[in-house]
Design a protein around this nucleic acid. Sequence first.
DNA 1: CTTGACCTTCCCATGATGGGAAGCACTACC
DNA 2: GGTAGTGCTTCCCATCATGGGAAGGTCAAG
Lengths: 148, 148
Amino acid sequence: MNIGEASRASGISAKMIRYYEQIGLIAPAHRSEAQYRTYADTDIHTLRFIRRARDLGFSVEQMKTLLALWHDRARASGDVKAIALEHIAELDRKAAAIAAMTATLRHLASNCHGDARPDCPILDDFADAPPETDMPEVSARFGRANIG
Amino acid sequence: MNIGEASRASGISAKMIRYYEQIGLIAPAHRSEAQYRTYADTDIHTLRFIRRARDLGFSVEQMKTLLALWHDRARASGDVKAIALEHIAELDRKAAAIAAMTATLRHLASNCHGDARPDCPILDDFADAPPETDMPEVSARFGRANIG
DNA sequence: CTTGACCTTCCCATGATGGGAAGCACTACC
DNA sequence: GGTAGTGCTTCCCATCATGGGAAGGTCAAG
């Protein structure tokens, strides 16, 4: 199986498959005589594993660890769970940051006429909101949230 | 006021102030004889505006538009509100993607013993989850969500 | 043998941010 | 008037995961 077919079978672009190989997330693919990468069913299995983990938001580093644990038949499920829980916590943090933003924005937008008149509470807020001293907790004010 | 003081007054790093100038988000600062950037109160006001918008998750491109509207005394508040609503919609999409991820992950984690035993439903799912055909709607399955 | 689809490597771009080096300017102190 | 220390300048590089595209080799069908 060439890389195009592997891509279709796994849902990962050929570009990314090469990249994952380059950074060591997956082992270098076997090569045909013409130096084409070839993939066996087990390789596709691995790629699908990666696809699933990636879709659940895991980073490449986390996926490296997860793949290692997957291949370690003597792994402790606690190690896997710990990574998952840490990732959930990270996602929860991002969600909280987003929720705080949308709460503030919805409030500002609801007070804005949104017509041809120039008065706009949104711009007024941006112009006059007091500078943040520091992030106290999750509120309508926070530093550059790690959401992008 | 030099860039360091402007940074402290606005909450934006000196690095980012220079970057914002470079990409044209803000006008080139006035320079002292020694070519030091100098900032007046109005400049700080603009930087604080940017800080606020940035903290609410707006992109540089959106901030460019918002700054233009801010300076346009004949603006229509509807134009500002439209940008805000679009951004809220974008944030909601990210939040939904995150929520779908955490829902799936919490479910998998709750079924994982998380002890020294190797059996792990999380890895089992990653290894065997059917490949996604395409994103149907917001569910536990979705493509590479735009959350990072 | 040509056409077209596929593969290869290599370089560049994204967005917003930080790190760090080399060199010049300013301030405070002796 | 030196000198130490801080601050400013520009320039280059890195992040993270991904895509775009060029130049060139390979393969299968007609």
